[in-house]
């Protein structure tokens, strides 16, 4: 099992299902009944959430985001991995060694 702080580009990532998700004012909001918490993923976080509906490597995720947004590879990789670690801390995603 991959722990927070150890996510790399070679890992694959996928949503954990079972949350109530909605779009509100262009931002993705989510209620986890299991955690008893409400989350606001924001606009970019919402895009990431949609892209990880099915299993995808972190590398592919970064590539897709770079094709949609004006961002450097270094910045995108760093900020996406940091965000994924936050999601992992909240048990909202699962991380595996890439297929």
């Amino acid at each position: 099992m991959i722990k927070s702080g150890n996510i790399s580009l070679g890992h694959s990532v996928k949503q954990i299902k079972g949350n109530i998700v909605s779009n509100m004012g262009g931002e993705k909001v989510m209620l986890s009944v299991k955690n008893g918490k409400y989350y606001n993923l924001g606009e970019i976080g919402g895009e990431i959430w949609d892209l990880i509906e099915e299993e995808i490597s972190v590398n592919q995720l970064v590539a897709k985001l770079m094709s949609n947004f004006v961002v450097t590879k270094t910045e995108c990789e760093k900020e996406v991995i940091t965000f994924l670690e936050l999601l992992l801390d909240e048990s909202l995603i699962e991380i595996k060694d890439s297929l």
Binding site: K37, Y39, G42
Partner: peptide
């Protein structure tokens, strides 16, 4: 057309 990038952040509110 590419959109502007903003650092993704997660806001958490404990409903309980």
């Amino acid at each position: 057309m590419k959109k502007e990038w903003k650092k993704p952040e997660l806001q958490v509110l404990d409903v309980r």
